[in-house]
Amino acid sequence: MTKFRPCIDLHNGQVKQIVGGTLSDDGVGLRENFVADESAADFAIRYREDNLTGGHVIQLGPGNREAALAALAAWPGGMQLGGGVTIENAAEWLQAGASQVIVTSWLFDADGTFSWDRLKQLSQEIGRDKLVVDLSCRKTAQGWTVAMNRWQTLTQVDVTKDSLDGLAEYCTEYLIHAADVEGLCGGVDLELVELLGDWGKIPMTYAGGVGQMCDIEAVEKHSSGKVDITVGSALDIFGGSGVKYADLVSWNAR
């Protein structure tokens, strides 16, 4: 059964909702859908009180360390941590309260070549059960291609059943942002959801494009309930009007 997983997206130390495809190193062209008055810790406390497990804190670039630490301290063991994770700091984030760490860019060379050695080393260092691999991707001629560096750089890894099989030996979950529809509230990528659901061997969380409750229902239907979902800009606690947070809490309580 598809579950709602909460998120805390951090940019320059603030909780924000951003159109994913506009992230860049220099900040030019960045589109912000929402900037919260509440702190990251405030959101973590809310999720803890409503027992919304399996969510994630994502650092979108530098300047987010203190906010991320505060969120993890507000709910030790309650949320995953992603953004800037490497083998040098993964254990530190786990000690700070992250349930698992989420990694993408560190697994690739500068040219987008995947390093199996790095994946194996990290999995061995912290344990497979503590590692989530982020396969956030863009639509390409190959289907979907993993993008790194805040979704700016296409890698040489495509999201296929074979690649999902290979990576799953070393991680406990996947997080998959559909970067092309992230933050647009225009509907989810159901073809990608179907691919993930048809594979369905380990837990997966999909993000991108949810605009209303029917999108969540569609993810459950098209993935046969094997893919969980996170909701960003459409959610009322993030300034949206398409999805009510209270409805998602009720959805998980079914």
Rank of each mutant, 00 (worst) to 15 (best):
L60S: 08
D117G: 13
I102T: 14
L69T: 08
G84S: 12
R48S: 06
E32I: 12
I87L: 12
G29N: 05
G82Y: 08
N51E: 03
L72C: 00
R65L: 12
T86Y: 10
Q95R: 14
L107R: 08
F4K: 14
T53G: 11
Q80R: 12
S115F: 10
D50Y: 04
L107P: 12
G21Y: 07
D26S: 13
G13F: 05
W75N: 02
H11E: 04
G55N: 02
T2R: 14
R48K: 15
A98Q: 12
V57W: 00
R48C: 00
A68Y: 03
G97T: 04
V19D: 02
N33F: 01
T22W: 07
L23K: 09
D25A: 10
W75V: 11
I18A: 05
Q80K: 09
A73Y: 03
E66C: 05
E66S: 14
V35T: 14
T22L: 09
A74W: 06
P62R: 15
L30E: 15
G29A: 05
E88H: 15
L30S: 06
D25H: 07
D111M: 12
A98T: 00
E38T: 03
N64T: 11
A98L: 09
H11N: 14
V85D: 02
D109L: 09
A110C: 02
G61T: 08
G54S: 01
V15E: 00
E32T: 11
N89K: 10
A73H: 06
G55M: 05
S39C: 07
T104Q: 14
L69G: 08
L10W: 04
A98M: 10
G78E: 06
L119F: 08
P62D: 08
R5D: 02
D109Y: 13
G97V: 03
N12G: 06
D117R: 15
I8W: 00
G63N: 10
E49S: 12
K16Y: 01
E49C: 04
T104D: 14
A68F: 02
A91E: 13
K16H: 01
L52R: 08
G63T: 10
F34D: 00
G29D: 07
F4V: 02
G61S: 06
G27R: 06
G112M: 07
S99Q: 11
L30Q: 09
E88W: 15
V103N: 06
V101N: 02
L81I: 13
N33W: 01
I87V: 13
C7F: 03
I102F: 15
L60W: 01
L107W: 07
P76G: 01
V15T: 04
Q80A: 07
A96V: 01
G13M: 08
V57S: 02
N33Y: 01
N12L: 07
W116E: 11
A36F: 03
N51S: 11
F4C: 01
V103R: 10
I58F: 08
G84C: 10
D37P: 05
S39N: 09
I18V: 12
F34Y: 13
G83R: 07
Q17M: 03
A110S: 12
G21R: 12
E92G: 14
A40T: 04
D26A: 08
I8K: 11
I18M: 07
G61I: 05
M79C: 03
V35A: 13
E92M: 15
G83F: 05
G112F: 09
F34S: 00
D117N: 14
I8M: 04
K16M: 02
D42P: 08
